[in-house]
């Protein structure tokens, strides 16, 4: 809803605060999601995401949510679907070139970003949208990506070990393992 969308950018700081916590929870839940199967929870989670974000941000479910980098103004509401800032056609007073009755999505984004803790994120160059992901849950995607990133950090020491002992890695690969360990295999070590 347009009104709520304006509200969201005016209160971008609060939404940023809430989202940071939501994201942390999602990342923490990654092992649970993985055990149930991301495939199984994709539809119900996407449904909730669509409802909430649709109401608040007029979310179009691009599946690659970047609201935290766009001042809580959804760039997919831009008629040109610009992901990196306003075009050169913004009308006087900050209205859209294509829909003159609507505030420019990026004027709102700039406004919203200025209120946010991580305001500088709006300067990041974002890639083009992967159209295959339309309709899928960005929340679950973030959970997977961040969890994967954490795993990769944990794996870094194993990689360093393998690189420091290349001969052993070659002749006795189990002495410097690199492959993903199944959960049961390392359970003992965790205890």
């Amino acid at each position: 809803m347009y009104r709520l969308r304006l509200f969201a950018t005016r209160h971008a700081r609060v939404f940023e605060w809430m989202y940071v916590r939501l994201e942390r929870a999602l990342v923490a839940l990654d092992p649970v999601f993985a055990r149930i199967g991301y495939n199984r929870i994709e539809r119900p989670v996407a449904l909730v995401e669509r409802g909430l974000k649709g109401l608040m941000f007029d979310c179009r479910m691009c599946g690659q949510c970047v609201l935290s980098s766009t001042g809580m103004s959804c760039p997919m509401n831009c008629p040109k679907e610009l992901r990196n800032g306003p075009c050169g056609g913004v009308r006087p007073g900050g209205f859209c070139e294509v829909k003159p009755e609507m505030r420019c999505v990026w004027v709102l984004a700039w406004d919203g970003a200025a209120r946010m803790r991580e305001a500088q994120r709006i300067s990041e160059v974002l890639p083009p949208v992967d159209r295959r992901l339309k309709g899928s849950s960005a929340w679950l995607r973030v959970a997977r990506e961040k969890a994967e990133g954490l795993r990769a950090t944990r794996e870094a020491d194993r990689l360093a070990m393998a690189e420091a002992f290349p001969g052993a890695r070659e002749s006795e690969p189990a002495s410097a393992p690199l492959a993903q360990e199944p959960a049961r295999a390392v359970e003992g070590a965790e205890r």
């Binding site: 610009l82 992901r83 990196n84 075009c87 160059v125 083009p128 159209r131």
Partner: peptide
């Protein structure tokens, strides 16, 4: 049909 698959910034980077 408006395409806008890229924007000017992603086009530059590409």
């Amino acid at each position: 049909k408006p395409v806008f698959d890229f924007d000017s910034v992603t086009l530059l980077r590409t």
